[in-house]
Design a protein around this nucleic acid. Structure first.
Lengths: 146, 146
DNA sequence: CTAGATTAAGATAAAAGACTCCGAATTAAA
DNA sequence: TTTAATTCGGAGTCTTTTATCTTAATCTAG
């Protein structure tokens, strides 16, 4: 299949980014998120629950309840979310699965991959949700429910 | 989960690399591969079947039968194998799963990721099985069955 | 205070991926 | 020519991920 992040993780990134677009204090419901981002309702519920547990979001029950960011958008990096959902094992395993591959016995792709891996890590820690949200707001960036 | 290539794909890479170590003309059986590389026997059978179908390997039934490379080791790139097993969709999807993200409507990570993605692609097309095999042959690189 | 909206939580189902089993087909070696 | 080794092909199982369903707990609005 060749993926980097799980579907859960992709949903989480999208949802948190969308929530970051709302004026501070306003709550966003699962219903709205699921509809606009086209994510399965109950599945998204579980994911957001997890993010609340990890402190990245806060939640409120009842009418006009929903979810909001647990800290400033600029302080939530992509890494925070990926780590919360997927974990970050990919940072120290041989990409090609060679069991004996390590720093001391590198496979032919080891060093090359090391650089790429560092690059991915840098991207995750350097990009924050505020930046992501800014791009999502652009007019061309039409969402499912318009 | 954060993976890049499926387990099937990892097994394929390891098996093809091991086969490349054999003198040309000699066949390698599933039995030997499964034992030395510590890969489930029947599962490996299916994977190799697929690689034969795709032309990367050739096979021969019966005693002293097995598998051999379908072309010169230096002409089989990692890309060939990844493409045959996993497909290479990752080369044109948004890493973060944003459905609207594209070259024209890039998300904040798009350009940055584009470079990393190109790097991964370059690694896959530039590394070939002959190079991988050379490293596998090193003495430190002990295999499961010695 | 009540009703309805919403999250929380657990159990369940469906889909995909990883892996196994069995028997048929083929072929080299004895 | 027989036998045994091997790949081939299909069906089936197990596990993980993704997704759904149901009920309980909570809270706001009226």
């Amino acid at each position: 299949m060749s993926i980097i992040f799980s579907r859960q993780c992709e949903y989480a990134l999208q949802a948190v980014t969308y929530i970051a677009l709302k004026p501070s204090g306003e709550m966003t419901s699962i219903k709205e998120l699921a509809k606009i981002l086209d994510i399965p309702y109950h599945f998204l519920g579980k994911i957001l629950q997890n993010l609340v547990y990890k402190g990245l979001l806060i939640s409120q029950k009842g009418p006009s309840g929903g979810f909001a960011l647990g800290m400033a958008a600029k302080d939530i990096t992509l890494f925070h979310i990926v780590e919360a959902i997927d974990g970050v094992d990919f940072t120290n395993k041989c990409v090609l699965g060679f069991p004996e591959c390590s720093g001391k016995n590198p496979c032919a792709a080891h060093t090359h991959w090391g650089n790429l891996r560092d690059g991915i890590y840098q991207m995750l820690v350097s990009k924050n949700i505020a930046e992501m949200a800014k791009d999502m707001k652009k007019p061309e960036y039409q969402l499912a429910a318009g």
